[in-house]
Design a binder for these strands. Structure first.
Lengths: 210, 210
DNA sequence: ATGCTATCGCTACAGCCGTAGCCTTAGCGA
DNA sequence: TCGCTAAGGCTACGGCTGTAGCGATAGCAT
């Protein structure tokens, strides 16, 4: 007996249930809802983001949104999945310090000027699915950033065996820590300073094997 | 006319309104409620923490809890204020690396075995007051940790001018980043490895002035 | 002791969240 | 073209959150 697809409305792994009718309507509903969610988020912040509001704004019925996304976290997880699938590539400035500074400036602006980023982090504490989506998003970014370390090793700037992930975390983590967790006063020089520290550390072999 | 104290039920700055009658009842209510909140948090996690439940558990009436703390964030902010006022001192092992490793192990256990810590972070995204209380708590901890750097400078382990805060952030931020934001698989060797990296970086002068 | 009043307890209510059940609509295949 | 049925729309409801108003109680000062 060919086991039929389980008909659960809320699959655990997939962010949005794959529709058996991908034609016009379902796709249109999804687009309208995701657009509405993002717009609401940008314009009025995370606290204003409720299923109620998104449904209203998108013109899709409340219960439909509940059925397909379950909660705000599910909505944002879906938004994130789209965002993570872009063609982003790490900067390539020709030097390790330049690359790390560039990365950190991107992170800095994302955290200070873009309400979406912090909203997604906040959502990840309230929804398991949003948390997974955010982890996946970041994993993709950090993977692509491995190129930065590879190039630095090739240029002889840092020891062979330097761990790309550790270096990248050392570069970006202090930014997240200061801005998101400690909520320190914003300091425009912070991203560059941290990136320079990480560069110095990497040159000293702080992220090589043992 | 002597202006009387404003009678707002929900002062913005103070976590708990100072009672004009500190005698038995108010204090007892506070104690019962905070104890109940912490117990509920430890036993059933953050998502289970509602005013409803805490009121039930403490035997204090729902509306009273709403009046004095307003929301879950206010409750946790009050819990935090008590926790931050303790006599905690940074470890003193005789070497920079030893001190940083010890600090990081504390952070690590707090993040992996103690549900309270992550719950407080989660709460800080939902409540301005909890966020401020958490910032204050951490500020106190980081201030006290400045001793670690001072001693290391005195011993000649790191250059004079090494910035205590930057060093401490570099040591602990990757832990928070991996465990809280990235939700990476827990790795018992992580705290030590990161602490050693930070030590190497500090010795190389990565956190000295410019 | 005794009155004053801050603080707590209680009831009632308005509003939002999330789900169930049923009906309607519109992709999709024949 | 036309039936089948997945998917969206609608209504109704139960539960939880947060507030208002009022009466009861117990610190505190005299």
């Amino acid at each position: 007996m060919a086991s039929p697809r389980p008909t659960s409305d809320h699959p655990d792994e997939l962010v949005t249930a794959p529709t058996r009718r991908p034609g016009g309507r379902s796709a249109a509903v999804r687009r309208r809802v995701l657009d509405a969610a993002l717009a609401q988020l940008v314009q009025h912040g995370y606290d204003s983001l409720s299923i109620e509001v998104v449904a209203e704004r998108s013109g899709v019925h409340r219960t439909t949104v509940y059925r397909r996304w379950r909660d705000v976290g599910g909505l944002l997880a879906d938004v994130l999945n789209e965002a993570g699938a872009d063609a982003w590539r790490p900067p390539d400035t020709g030097s390790l310090e330049g690359d790390l500074v560039a990365v950190n400036r991107e992170v800095y602006t994302a955290l200070t000027t873009d309400p979406v980023t912090v909203a997604l982090i906040a959502a990840s504490f309230r929804s398991e699915r949003a948390a997974r989506a955010l982890s996946a998003f970041w994993a993709g970014r950090y993977d692509r950033c491995a190129d930065i370390t590879r190039r630095a090793v090739d240029r002889g700037e840092v020891p062979a065996g330097t761990d790309a992930r550790r270096l990248l975390i050392a570069t970006t983590a202090p930014l997240y820590h200061e801005l998101v967790l400690l909520r320190a006063a914003t300091d425009a020089d912070l991203p560059d300073r941290v990136a320079r520290s990480a560069t110095t550390a990497a040159r000293a072999g702080a992220f090589a094997d043992p």
